[in-house]
Each structure stands twice: as structure tokens, then as C-alpha cells.
Design a protein around this nucleic acid. Sequence first.
DNA 1: AACGGAACCTGAAAGC
DNA 2: TGCTTTCAGGTTCCGT
Length: 268
Amino acid sequence: MPELPEVEIARRNLADWLEGKRIRAVRLPRTRVLRGTTPAALGKLLTGRTVRSVDRRGKWLELALSGGAALFSHLGMTGKWVRRAPDAPAHKSERARLELPGFDVRYHDPRMFGRLVGSPDGAPIEEWRALGPDPLADGLDPRDFAARLAHTHRAIKEALMDQSLIAGIGNIQAAEALWRARLHPSVRADALDGKQVRALLRAIDDSIAATLASETAPEITYVEERGAENPFSVYGKAGLPCPRCGTPIARTEQGGRGTFFCPHCQPR
DNA sequence: AACGGAACCTGAAAGC
DNA sequence: TGCTTTCAGGTTCCGT
């Protein structure tokens, strides 16, 4: 279940595999992943195009194609792009297949929360245009970010997961960044001072960099999958000692999802 | 306008 | 063993 770092790894992999390659054929079963379009329409858009570049903003990927078209991909909770030999058996959750010269790139997504959207003229789709600045691709201006936070009464953790405010942060990166910045997840966003906002932006950069460093691999294993190590400081660590002070990590619920934090390092 | 909660899905793990 | 429940890092829509 991908957030900014996992999607960035997917971008790098797709760029390695696809840039300069021509999509000879596609296989697109009719699934929820294609909502808003049809297999025929998307197939027609993709077939025969060469992939020029692979870009990312927040949790969205954009494959720029020859002839000015583009393919937008969101991985949802369980989406994954993988490279396979053409004769490799299809995975049960395969939702799309791009056939390149000598190999396939396939999209797996058991829960089908992900999306594939074609853009015939390459114009960014509405969801892409609605995204706020991306901490890795754009960098965030502390003053601008502070001004945006000052407009919301929500808890800082919920604000961080608002993709229009800052793009790419999900439940894990929010928890990790707040721990690094020593901020309680329930603190109101408009209560942070300038120093705290700067610390938070640094924490976000550091957390993303740390996750990228720990997960770089041709195939991503998400934390909750069997056999995966948990490389995080507080996420999924309820009851375990805080890496900084040893206090047991607490778990609460915020906006219907789990929130992890250190009650000692992150006071209200 | 802004917020909380349910809905959308499947599969793995934990509980019984 | 096998059935049931719970939970999951995504967005979106609906009611207040």
C-alpha cells in the first residue's frame, strides 16, 4: 500500500523498464481499475505508443507517450507494477498488461482501489491538477505551507494526509514525520508556529528519504505483507519501545485509521 | 465550506 | 482444522 516513497520507487522502475520502448500490445480485463473508461478505449490509446518518460506527483504516476498522449496510474492500496517474462503465468490479481519487446510490464491490484486513466492529448487529469506541492519533486516553501495550515482547524495528522495541501503523505508517512518532528498527531494544524512547521517539513523530507533508502528494490514488499520487515519508527509499533526514549508507542484512532505516536516525545 | 463516517474491495492474520 | 472476525499505508461520496 503505497505512499510517496513506494510510488517513487515504482516510477524509477517503470522509467528503467519502459523509457524508449514501444507498447506492442496491451491486455486490459474489464475491472474497477478502469472506472471512467473502457478496455477498448484505453487499449486503443496505448497500443503502438512509445513511452517517453515516467513522472510522479504525490501518489500519481504519469507515463508520457509518443504522439502527446499520457497514461495516469494510481496504485490505490494494493497496486503494483511488475516486470515479467512474456510466458510467465498471470497473477490472480493482474489488472493490466503492457507487452514490450521481449518482456511484459504488468499491473497487479487485488483490491482494485487503484486506477488507470488515459489522456489522449496528455492533459493532466483533474485528480492530478488538484494535488498540492510534492515534497520530493517540488519541495515545499515553509511560509506557504504554514499559511495553508493556518486555514484549517483539523488535526495536523489529518491535514498532512490532505493531498491538496501536500501531495504524497499517507497514514504511515504522517505518523513517521510527526514522530520525527516531535509533534502530537492531534495538535491542530493552525496551532503550529513557524519553527514547528519548519521542523515538520524537515521531518517529512527525512522520513521520505529514510523510507526510500530502506525500500529500494525492483519489487516492493509492503509492510503488512508476509515476511516484510517493518522499517518504521512508530508505524505498526504499538507497545514497542520508542527508538528515541524507550516509552511504549501508543495507538489511537483518528479519522477512522490507526495513529501511532510516542506519548513522551510527542506531548500534546 | 468543512468535517466525520461509511462505502468501495480483497486477502491475510488473528481469534475462537 | 476450519469458520468468523478484524484489519489494511487508498480515494470518494453523502449527510450534517
